[in-house]
Design a protein around this nucleic acid. Structure first.
Lengths: 218, 218
DNA sequence: TTAATTTTCAAACAGTCGTTTGAAGTTGAT
DNA sequence: ATCAACTTCAAACGACTGTTTGAAAATTAA
């Protein structure tokens, strides 16, 4: 087995596979991407995937894990930084914490830019068996921390309603940063430019902030 | 070719295929669903799909078209009803119009309930070549009408920013009604119940309304 | 240099894919 | 009852799927 992918040219090969697979998985999904597409784009032999990652599923998991850790750590840092700095933080600040993590991730080419957000947005609707257990493991604590912080900032809302608003917030955010746009889908032109994370965040913040702070529904 | 699918048992067969395919496409995507899965679930011979729909792509198109028309008509009716009833309608009312269409569609089992919204939410991230031209054709005018109405209700915003807010609104809406939930993905429990469209709408409205009416970002 | 290890490669594996075929079965009209 | 049109069916089509093989090539260690 290829346990020594940290030396010489081997690293280059497995890295080329990861990079090619990442793009293809985001674009066409897991089952919509074939081994030969991946190895063709990466310019490696088709057996290299099984050599380095064991299987196609193993490759997908590796593709995901590569980005999941830095994103989770970044998001967790942001919320910890906020909640430990003061007692009376606002819901807007919680949203900013979450968004700044996505922004920094999206602006950093070393972290794949916005690719990982797109992969997350896809996982939103495409229930991958690999992610079914990997995601709660990676983001369970993170989600609980944000829900807790949001509940603390919005004490007039029930925990049920706090969960709903977190749900709405993340939906809008992920799709916004991923560039999943109604107009791109329903019209021929797009009308908005999702390329620049800074601009997305700027447009997103007032919407999310107002939504979170809106009066209770019940 | 099976051009006479409006007589006798033939209708039953093509209908069974449509119903089975709809669920499987939503659950596993286009490339993640095989002909044999579909015909197995529908309990028909595998050749029946090509006989009635020409190809797998043709089937997908038929699955989509069956729900697209009533949804588009419903949404268009709602916005026309609002804009013709008075001159000074609010952004909240525009959001309500859009939401009530999704609600009525989701509450009506004859229209497949929430299945179509899930299919739409999936199309959000999975760029199906069939939909690439079908969606603008079906929803182009609809989108323009809503954007126009939203711009009229929010005259202090630039058309750019109106587009962004429509983008955020629809992202939150589609994922909410489709039940695409962060907590369902990132945690083991879900914390929110997306089964009841009425409840979803009730939770969604104050969030969306406040977001739309928030002060301009620029 | 020799020996051991790691990596690459072309070729083939069994299985599944969407699709087609041609015959058998069914239906309704004359 | 006869005919034509429609629908169903088992079987097979070539192409493609992910994976494995065993030898060649490249790299590393002694």
């Amino acid at each position: 087995m290829g346990s020594g992918m940290e030396t010489g040219k081997a690293l280059e090969t497995s890295l080329r596979i990861l990079n090619a697979a990442e793009i293809l998985f985001v674009e066409h999904g897991f089952s919509g991407t074939s081994m030969r597409q991946i190895t063709g784009a990466a310019q490696v032999n088709i057996a290299a995937v099984n050599y380095y990652f064991g299987s196609k599923e193993g490759l997908f998991q590796a593709v995901f894990e590569r980005r999941a850790e830095p994103f989770a750590r970044l998001s967790l840092d942001k919320i910890n930084q906020l909640t430990s700095s003061k007692n009376n933080f606002t819901a807007t600040e919680v949203a900013e914490a979450f968004m700044s993590a996505a922004m920094e991730m999206g602006s950093n080419p070393a972290h794949g830019g916005l690719i990982f957000v797109k992969l997350l947005a896809r996982s939103y609707v495409e229930p991958n068996p690999v992610l079914k257990e990997k995601l709660p493991q990676r983001y369970g604590e993170l989600t609980r921390r944000y829900l807790e912080a949001l509940g603390q900032a919005l004490p007039h809302l029930s925990s049920q309603e706090v969960s709903w608003r977190f749900h709405f917030m993340t939906s809008a955010m992920f799709n916004a940063f991923a560039g999943n746009n109604v107009m791109r889908l329903f019209m021929t032109q797009s009308l908005v430019n999702a390329r620049d994370p800074q601009l997305v965040a700027q447009m997103l913040l007032p919407f999310i902030a107002a939504g979170l702070n809106s009066p209770a529904a019940v």
